[in-house]
Write a protein that binds this DNA or RNA. Structure first.
Lengths: 253, 253
DNA sequence: TCAAAAGTGTTGCATCTACACCCATGT
DNA sequence: ACATGGGTGTAGATGCAACACTTTTGA
């Protein structure tokens, strides 16, 4: 804890320096759910391979400098698009990291976290294969098999995962991973991948039905065993309450 | 919601501008509980009267530029001390506000929120009266009677209050307002002031007792009616879980 | 007909809420 | 003695976890 009383404010020295030497970057922890064969899907993150110092040969979060005429959230959305070619289903500010020693030069990073729909990611990587070219130096990693990371990016990813796991408990963020129609098993598997534990299908069903955020369709997914009803999101309800923050802060115009 | 697929990343233009034109400020929403006569205590915030453009004659959050060798949290703690002469019992990053048009010049503000113990505030203002001088241009306002505010500071305060009200439900932040020994009524009044509604004393007692964060003392507050037992905080437990964020991010070295 | 997932029912436990009630003190 | 806040007891409602059970399909 912190606490206590200080000397009178008159004695406190005010630094003369202004902050022009500080550069401001935007980075994003981009998350999706990757189907892994017929096993449970797993959380995955795209990282950028660094070819220059500092931290040459290590992997970093996608990001870039915040342009003079650009809001931080726009930098996040822009660099996310440059890296993946996609627009996120969810985008939220994570934290502003600004410790003096977090980089050899003074950089404050305003970090966002984003969710991508798994069908978008699959379609995009198929398009890259078809076109014969994919973004250079970008690779996807399972969150529990990350490579050596640059700067404080390992801590940042850990914090983003903590926030995701927290938020999934009291919001609908998990829906951000799913296509427009999905079964309750799809949704439950998303929750299980995020939380890392098994959920009872019967109780899960009742909980999401009681929440009233799902619209049942007349369609079913067949294939094996008893067909499962497909549901749509009730798009009247936000994926997560943002409180009184301006809508511009978390969505894209 | 956001969603959708974009053009290939090869077509996205990268701005040439770097971020040297952006200045970075730190501001803090400082909250305390002010006893208002014998009525219920109320949430209050210190604000700084602006004497220069932009927004001359309006009121602003305490803050300043982040120095080149200073972490954002240190800027928050420093400007908080300059404004109030006190150290906070709780300090947490609120949000980085960076919309392009939020200030006539380009400024990104990393905003913190802090709690002050009400006994610290009372002692400090008594000291100011005794010394015959108090910080210039600083005045305390009830949160539901705020003056005309500069920049986007009204929105920022609204967001800070939303965060406080949320956090009080799943953490012990309300303890940050109280002295080291307090009665359960003191604590309940803090919760009531934050949430803006009455809480059942009997149920409140059982809840905080069950949480196990309070240590009963042998002392009682006498004065009127039946004496009330005094409690201390269990300082082994943090006021609020910060997740995997470094301890440096929310406490003062 | 069997395996396995979809979907329903039921029971027990913990927690919350409302409110009745007793306790201890200053006036 | 009595008003008032401190503190305890208790019954009903609600929510959740565990798990038995039925349904529907593909193989």
């Amino acid at each position: 804890m912190v606490g206590g009383t200080l000397r009178s404010s008159a004695e406190v020295k005010v630094p003369e320096t202004r902050s022009e030497e500080i550069r401001v970057a935007g980075s994003t922890v981009i998350l999706t759910l990757r189907p892994s064969g017929d096993a449970a899907p797993r959380l995955a993150i795209p990282l950028v391979h660094r070819t220059r110092e500092p931290f040459a040969d290590r992997w970093a979060l996608p990001g870039g400098w915040i342009a003079a005429d650009e809001s931080p959230v726009d930098t996040a959305a822009r660099t996310l698009a440059e890296t993946t070619g996609l627009a996120p289903s969810y985008l939220e500010q994570l934290y502003a990291f600004g410790a003096v020693d977090r980089s050899p030069t003074r950089v404050i990073s305003i970090v966002y976290w984003a969710l991508l729909r798994q069908d978008d990611v699959i379609a995009q990587s198929a398009a890259h294969v078809a076109a014969g070219r994919a973004p250079e130096n970008v690779e996807w990693f399972d969150v529990d098999a990350l490579p050596a990371l640059a700067f404080d990016h390992a801590d940042i990813i850990e914090y983003a995962l903590w926030r995701l796991r927290n938020k999934v408990g009291y919001s609908r963020v998990a829906h951000g991973f799913l296509p427009s129609e999905f079964t309750l098993s799809d949704l439950r598997e998303a929750y299980e991948a995020i939380l890392g534990r098994h959920l009872d299908p019967a109780n899960f069903r009742r909980q999401v039905e009681a929440a009233g955020n799902l619209i049942p369709t007349d369609r079913f997914r067949t294939g094996s065993h008893r067909p499962a009803r497909l549901y749509r999101d009730n798009t009247d309800v936000e994926l997560a309450a943002r409180g009184p923050l301006s809508p511009a802060e978390t969505s894209i115009r």
